[in-house]
Nucleic acid binder design. Structure first.
Length: 983
RNA sequence: AAGCCUGUAGCCCAACGGAAGAGGCAAUAGUUUUAGAAACUAUUAAGUGUGUGUUCGAAUCACACCAGGCUUACCA
């Protein structure tokens, strides 16, 4: 009987489906375990072999935990709103809902092929109104909350209103706002618009005006992490700054808690660091410098610095060109230069600014006064200071800051040295440990200690305050797009009013076209019926109210999906509190690093807000995060020689050169290696080929030049490195059908290769369906794991899969012989066989527990090799082995499990218990080293004492020979490891 | 520019500070086969990127450097 993987796999996939084998209950006696894969976007391109890596790992781990007696939740669903579907709709006129549905169906088919054990009853889709009803509901909770800084948590906005009514604005630390401090009485007398605009400054989800990343081509606003190098991450379109009305999430209020939370979750150091950098907390001081300018309009300039200790090293000030005070500071003499510079800055795109970092700037003509020694410090403007961070102005200390130093050198600004010999005059030294000089009352102090001294002094004088700053900005939360969640908000008289809970979901209307609305608004703005659907109603919001036309960004739905999986069909709540208390945190989250600062930060914030408001019982969503590495593509290249000639010097028609010059002459790898740096040799080869190419001899042929180049060829046309010539000729509509080939000596065409990102454009994608069809899902699963550690990026190499496939066939032969049929038996297992089994149990348990799936696979190979050598076909052993194997290769395990006569599913078996007694040995062959070099071997009892060892070792002939009569200094004996004699 | 990760047979990768090899691919030889492929059996192969140090003992720890990858990039 052969291993017919196709039949077996189909059979059991069907069986598991029919028996609901992967169904998970919210009630169980067992301990819970929650495994989650990062929410996939169902793209139209389908899966390549790189995508399922994390899903296989999580599937193995979930099945393993199930065998270990846990109630395991392992769901899957779709992050289905998003730009590509809408882009597709614009281009092809197909409704995003339709293309998304198709993509999901295709995605699902590919997943099912691999035999995952997802509880599909719990599937969620963010674009389903039954789902986004609750996204909108959570948005309303955020809208109706504020962050109480003294309680350090989010609270209902009603609490804030009560506080305003009782005590005015002084009760809560005032945020910068449109309105100054107010008393309780004043609050009560404010009109509705004023009140609402004050409240808007507090809401966790709020609407404001701000500079946003505007992408004209996509017609939408992008988050900072969706902009890469000044162009959109999706599509690489230019992005510019634009002031627009936008919704935001007040994530900055959570900055400290997001940082502190990192200490109690298991993320990789790299991941924690990325989040820490993104939040970018720094502490220092804001210092007010008196300004001396011609116009006397500006009295002071506020800068932010983390190094107040360097206050006596300030040689100039730099203000961001965008700041309004620039206009007021410029002197008559400098006005023209300043205006010219401002025009220059404006002309530069974000991209240019990032790409070319040239030093530029201009003096404003105004001076700041050092608060301590009264020195006059010139105020400059330069684009190296960003308007959006700190106060948009800095005090420049060239001897301690590299950028300031370069600027000073460039503009010949004299540099004050406050760190003595630590500054060499050549480049800045950012040390904190130097002793200060030229620093008035700080002289002789270590810089590190001077920081606090200066801040205290500034606060005393009232010219500065201690200040913490964050790089992180509030998260832009609106998109001018159709395919996203509508905001449950009605605008009336410039005030945003929330819809009431029972009006949710606010569903997306049908649209005819997806082009943007007027003034940067989204497509929804074009549908008056929808926008005004509340205008005529009798609700308090009727009478002229208009719906918000922005939609929510992609991360809205994915910020809380892990909660919906717990209770996916609940139409009374986003998730029942009892259920979320049962499942609690996601115990294991598997996904790529690309969501390090986007999704992972947003969902952590939502979780904290929901926790603060009492809707869930935990404030970190993910307990442990494992980052899967990328599976890279191994690209293949063919090498081409093309003719290039000075055409004017050749009689084109006569020579036939024109026709032939378009011919593809493809040379195999070793020839390519020889000629790539030797155009002469390439030319010789060409000339030899000319008659064959139908080019007649011509005196001007000496002017021909050979150009050698390489290009990607589809990896599916290549077996290892050998090109399938026939398939290649048919490739791309037979574009290369008349290509000429120069082969290796053995007649093969060998491609060269390179490891690159797996992508369609590099022709190096491999479709998992193809692999599953050829080798089976079990082989595919194990091979993906076998490639290397999950966290590491590694290239895909289809060739290596044979080894894993052979392993499964070899396993099969322990049960069935091709000729004899059934060979397994019920004989009693021997000690040697039990030893193999228990060694394997231990290793598989350890490896799986620590996500070392690659070594797990190889452990199975060893076990099967050893059992084959022992000719072990005993049920007693094999049955246990199958249980170990079932997380990795579920189909073949289930088949053989049932063949052994088990009635239930192997999914519900229990993980074998390791028993040390089968593997413990009483003796060990110890290596005996003299001075660290192994010289002989001794078989000793494991329980032997140090004294006994020394005795035996000293009496050993070999040892004596190496000692040459000398006394050993020390004899090191490590139990179960080795013995070392130090002479 | 900085931070993090990774450098072990031709390749992919193992090895809780204790004899560098578990496994797989490839290669070579053999068995089987009309032949090829497949299958099976066996064999070969590195001293751990470089250099210093800690240690009785280093692939493993520390420091520096080199190479590759990822991330962030004027955050004052």
């Amino acid at each position: 009987m052969e291993y017919k993987f196709r039949e077996i796999e189909k059979k059991w996939q069907q069986h598991w489906k029919e028996t609901n084998a992967c169904k998970v209950s919210n009630q169980s006696e067992k301990p819970k375990y929650y495994v989650l894969d990062m929410f996939p976007y169902p793209s139209g391109a389908g899966l390549h072999v790189g995508h399922p890596l994390g899903y296989i790992a999580s599937d193995i781990y979930s099945r393993f935990k199930r065998l270990k007696g846990f109630n395991v939740l392992h769901p899957m669903g779709y992050d289905a709103f998003g730009l590509p579907a809408e882009q597709y709709a614009i281009e092809h006129g197909i409704h995003p809902a339709v293309s998304t549905e198709n993509n999901i169906e295709n995605f699902r088919k590919q997943l099912d092929n691999i035999g995952f054990c997802y509880d599909w009853d719990r599937e969620v889709r963010t674009c389903d109104p039954r789902y986004y009803k609750w996204t909108q509901w959570i948005f309303l909770q955020l809208f109706n909350s504020f962050y109480n800084r003294s309680a350090n948590k989010a609270e209902p906005i009603a609490n804030l209103i009560k506080a305003f009514e009782a005590e005015g604005s002084l009760v809560v630390d005032r945020r910068p706002s449109t309105v100054d401090q107010f008393t309780a009485d004043e609050w009560k007398n404010f009109d509705e618009v004023t009140k609402q605009s004050i409240l808007m400054d507090y809401r966790l989800a709020y609407c404001g005006y701000g500079e946003v990343n505007w992408c004209e081509a996509l017609g939408t606003v992008l988050a900072n992490d969706e902009v890469v190098n000044g162009v959109s991450e999706r599509g690489s379109f230019p992005v510019v700054k634009k002031k627009l009305r936008q919704w935001y999430l007040r994530i900055t209020e959570y900055a400290d808690r997001l940082l502190e939370g990192l200490d109690c979750i298991e993320f990789s150091d790299a991941m924690k660091e990325m989040q820490t950098n993104w939040i970018g907390k720094s502490s220092g001081a804001e210092i007010d410098f008196e300004v001396k300018s011609q116009k006397l309009k500006v009295k002071s300039l506020r800068v932010y610095t983390t190094r107040p200790d360097t206050i006596f090293g300030v040689d100039f000030m730099v203000v961001a060109p965008e700041l309004d005070i620039v206009e007021e500071m410029k002197s008559a003499g400098q006005a023209a230069a300043v205006d010219e510079y401002l025009a220059y800055v404006k002309s530069r795109s974000e991209r240019e600014r990032m790409a070319e970092k040239k030093i530029s700037g201009v003096f404003t003509g105004a001076y700041a006064i050092n608060p301590f020694d009264g020195r006059e410090i010139p105020i400059w403007i330069s684009e190296y200071v960003l308007a959006g961070y700190g106060t948009g102005a800095i005090m420049a200390v060239p001897c301690g800051d590299e950028r300031d130093h370069k600027f000073a050198q460039h503009f010949n600004i004299p540099i004050t040295n406050i760190i003595g010999k630590h500054y060499n005059g050549e480049e800045a030294n950012p040390t904190k440990d130097a002793i200060l000089v030229n620093s008035d009352f700080l002289n002789g102090m270590v810089m590190r200690d001077a920081v606090d001294v200066v801040i205290n002094k500034l606060e005393e004088k009232g010219t500065g305050t201690r200040k913490v700053n964050y790089k992180m900005r509030d998260a832009a939360f609106s998109r001018q797009r159709y395919w996203g969640e509508p905001f449950p908000i009605i605008w009336k008289d410039g005030v945003a009013y929330p819809l009431s809970e029972n009006e949710l979901p606010l569903t997306l209307p049908e649209v005819k076209n997806y082009s943007p609305g007027p003034e940067g608004e989204g497509p929804l703005a074009n549908i008056n019926d929808w926008v005004n659907s509340y205008a005529a109603t009798n609700t308090p919001l009727g009478d002229g109210g208009a719906l918000e036309t922005n939609t929510m960004p992609g991360y809205a739905g994915s910020s809380w999906y892990f909660l919906r999986y717990m209770d996916p069909h609940n139409n009374k709540a986003f998730c029942d509190r009892n259920v979320s208390d049962y499942w609690g945190q996601v115990d294991l989250y598997i996904g790529g690093t690309e969501h390090a600062v986007g999704h992972l930060l947003y969902s952590r914030m939502w979780t904290k807000a929901l926790y603060d408001l009492g809707f869930i019982g935990h404030d970190e969503p993910y307990k442990k995060l494992v980052n899967q590495g990328m599976i890279q593509g191994s690209s293949r290249f063919v090498h081409r020689i093309t003719l290039r000639a000075d055409v004017s010097s050749i009689d084109v028609e006569a020579s036939g050169f024109k026709m032939s010059s378009n011919k593809n002459i493809l040379v195999s790898k070793s020839i390519f290696e020889k000629i790539k740096d030797d155009s002469n040799l390439a030319k010789q080869i060409l000339i030899k080929l000319l008659p064959e190419l139908g080019i007649s001899e011509h005196e001007k042929l000496k002017d021909i030049e050979a150009v050698v180049s390489i290009f990607h060829v589809d990896v599916n046309l290549v077996d290892g490195y050998e090109l399938d010539i026939e398939a290649f000729k048919r490739w791309r509509n037979s574009e290369y059908s008349d290509a000429k080939f120069l082969f290796e000596e053995d007649g093969k065409y060998i491609c060269s290769s390179e490891v690159e990102k797996m992508s369609k454009s590099k022709f190096n994608t491999v479709n998992p369906d193809m692999i599953v069809d050829k080798y089976g899902a079990d082989t595919f699963r194990m091979y993906e794991m076998f490639l290397g550690p999950v966290e590491i990026s590694k290239p895909w190499d289809t060739k290596g899969i044979e080894g894993v496939h052979r392993f499964l066939k070899k396993l099969w032969r322990l049960f069935y012989d091709d000729v004899k049929g059934k060979v397994w038996n019920e004989e009693k297992a021997s000690d040697a066989e039990l030893k193999v089994l228990h060694k394997t149990i231990k290793k598989i348990e350890e490896d799986t527990e620590r996500f070392s799936f690659n070594t797990g696979v190889s452990t199975f190979m060893i076990a099967v090799n050893e059992l084959t050598d022992l000719k072990c076909n005993k049920k007693e052993i094999l049955e246990q082995l199958l249980i170990l194997l079932t997380p990795y290769a579920p189909h073949v395990s289930e088949e053989l499990w049932s063949a052994l006569g088990n009635s239930g599913s192997i999914l519900d078996a229990s993980f074998p218990k390791f028993e040390a007694k089968y593997v413990t040995e009483s003796t060990k062959d110890y290596p005996v080293a003299i001075n660290g070099k192994t010289r002989t071997e001794l078989t000793l009892d494991l329980n032997i004492t140090q004294q006994e060892v020394e005795q035996i070792v000293l009496n050993n002939e070999v040892v004596q020979k190496w000692l040459e009569g000398k006394e050993p200094r020390k004899i090191i004996y490590v139990r179960n490891k080795m013995i070392n004699v130090v002479v």
